[in-house]
C-alpha cells in the first residue's frame, strides 16, 4: 500500500503554519523514523497521514483512498494510530481496551480472528497476565504498553506511532524496539516519531526529518542522520558519527558541540 502526501499541508486560522505543504511517498514495508525538535510539526505530519487532522492544502492518500474522503471504518482497516493524547478509559479492563482495536473488522470475515489477535498482541507486549486488570490501576509505562498492544491488535498494514516511547523506561523502550522490529519483519509499514535519534538510527531504515513546520529531508536514515541535517533540524551544532554495532548493524552516536 502506497502512503503518499500530495502537496499536503495544514495552515490553521490566523495563518498559523502547522506543516508547510509537502509531497512525499512513505517507503512501503519499512520503518520510517520521524525526527525533529519539539513543536517542529512531527505530530501534524503524522496526523495528516492518519486522518486525525484535516489538511488545508492538498491531500494524503493510503493506497487508492484519499484519507479525508474515506469512511472511518475503512481507514481503520488500513492504518492504526498510537497518539499521545489518550484519555483515561476509567473502569475498563486491559482486555476491553485492546478489544476496541477490532472495531474496524466487525462484520467482515476477519472478525473471527478477534480473540486470537487480542491475545497475540497482549502477549507480544508482555501484558497477557494483566488482561483483567482495570486500566486506570496500571502505571504510565504499563498503560503505554497496553495501547501499543491495541494498535497491534488492529492488524492494519500501516502503523503510525507518535512518540510511543515517551512514558517508557529503559526496559520498556527495548521491548518497544523489538516489537516494532518484529512488526517490520511481518511486512508492516511503520511510521514512528521519537526524540531518541540514536535509537531510531538503530531500528529504522528510512527517515523523515521535520524542522520548523517543514519536511527538510526524506530518505535512507544513514543519509538523514548526518551532522548537517541534524544540526539544521535542531538549529544547533550537533556531531553525528555512525558506528558499527555487534550483529552487522550500525547506529548513530550523537553529540552536542559546545
Amino acid at each position: 500500500m502506497n502512503v503518499e502526501l500530495h502537496s499536503c499541508g495544514l495552515i490553521s486560522k490566523g495563518n498559523r503554519v502547522r506543516l508547510n505543504p509537502t509531497s512525499l511517498t512513505v517507503a512501503s514495508g519499512q520503518i520510517t523514523a520521524v525526527i525533529g525538535p519539539n513543536g517542529a510539526g512531527k505530530s501534524t505530519f503524522l496526523g495528516l497521514i492518519s486522518g486525525v487532522l484535516k489538511p488545508t492544502h492538498g491531500y494524503a492518500s493510503l493506497g487508492d483512498h484519499v484519507v479525508t474522503e474515506t469512511r472511518s471504518q475503512t481507514l481503520a482497516q488500513l492504518r492504526a494510530v498510537l497518539s499521545q493524547d489518550l484519555a483515561q478509559s476509567f473502569g475498563f479492563t486491559v482486555y476491553d481496551v485492546v478489544s476496541w482495536a477490532r472495531t474496524p473488522w466487525r462484520g467482515t470475515e476477519h472478525q473471527g480472528n478477534d480473540t486470537q489477535a487480542i491475545e497475540r498482541a497482549l502477549t507480544s507486549v508482555g501484558m497477557q497476565s494483566s488482561a483483567e486488570r482495570p486500566i486506570h490501576q496500571l502505571s504510565g509505562g504499563e498503560r503505554q504498553r497496553v495501547h501499543l498492544a491495541r494498535v497491534i491488535a488492529q492488524d492494519s498494514p500501516l502503523l503510525i506511532l507518535d512518540e510511543p516511547d515517551s512514558d517508557l523506561d529503559l526496559v520498556g523502550r527495548n521491548l518497544l524496539d523489538s516489537v516494532v522490529t518484529g512488526l517490520h519483519e511481518s511486512g508492516k509499514t511503520i511510521l514512528i516519531s521519537s526524540h531518541d535519534v540514536k535509537r531510531m538510527s538503530h531500528i529504522a531504515q528510512e527517515a523523515v526529518v521535520v524542522s520548523q513546520q517543514k519536511v527538510i529531508y526524506q530518505g535512507p536514515i544513514q543519509q538523514a542522520v548526518t551532522s548537517e541535517v541534524i544540526s539544521e533540524a535542531f538549529q544547533s551544532k550537533i556531531r553525528v558519527k555512525w558506528v558499527d554495532k555487534p550483529g552487522a548493524t550500525q547506529e548513530a552516536n550523537i553529540t552536542m558541540i559546545e
Binding site: S50, V52, S72, Q88, T103
Partner: peptide, 21 residues
C-alpha cells in the same frame, strides 16, 4: 453502546480505531 465505550479513549483515538465519532 459499544462505540460509546470506545469514546473513553478520547475523540481522536476513537476515530483512529474506526469509530465515526
Amino acid at each position: 453502546a459499544r462505540p460509546l465505550d470506545i469514546f473513553a479513549l478520547g475523540d481522536s483515538a476513537a476515530f483512529a480505531s474506526g469509530v465515526p465519532v
